[in-house]
């Protein structure tokens, strides 16, 4: 017996001529095998349609390549900023403002002697700014030398202690 699977195929796509359609229906009423083929094609059509629909929806919702690019760009930017910060730390020190009486020698600040304080006989004031130099007439006095001697002893002692401590 002739089977009608080719005609079934055309019928399901709406491409079968009217007279062939009647012939097909007549055959389907008798042939169980063709009825099964008909049902198989029907479910196959539905399955493939759903499959393509699902696949296309999935492809549309999938994170795109541009997003991946931004992800990598974020890491690159993070790495670049870390390198930038490290360069800043290793580079030029922060700007420091120095007073009129200071001279900058690399990073060590040395106080300039102010010309006015040299010739002036002023009282020794512990709060005077600048290097403390005793006026000449004062440094010649005996008690001042004595006090200076005492201070140097105390100073060297404390220095010793410090050195021991650090060792």
């Amino acid at each position: 017996m002739k089977h009608f699977d080719y005609e079934i195929n055309l019928f399901l796509d709406g491409e079968l001529q009217e007279e062939n359609r009647k012939e097909l229906f007549a055959h389907l009423a008798e042939c169980e095998e063709c009825t099964n083929i008909f049902l198989d094609y029907l479910s196959l059509k539905e399955k493939t349609r759903n499959y393509f629909a699902g696949n296309i929806t999935h492809l549309k919702n999938k994170p795109s390549g541009h997003n991946r690019f931004y992800k990598y760009a974020f890491y690159t930017a993070a790495a670049a900023s870390i390198i930038f910060v490290m360069l800043l730390l290793n580079g030029k020190p922060k700007t420091q403002y120095i007073t009129k009486n200071e001279v900058r020698v690399d990073t060590v600040f040395v106080q300039k002697e102010s010309p006015s304080s040299k010739n002036k006989t002023t009282r020794i004031n512990p709060f005077t700014v600048g290097k403390k130099v005793l006026p000449e007439e004062l440094s010649q006095k005996a008690y001042v030398n004595y006090v200076k001697g005492l201070r140097s002893i105390v100073f060297s002692k404390s220095n010793k202690n410090n050195n021991e401590g650090s060792l």
Partner: peptide, 14 residues
Amino acid sequence: LNYSLSLLKNYDDA
């Protein structure tokens, strides 16, 4: 869009 998506398999390309 759908046809090119079915061929290229990539939404951006489509």
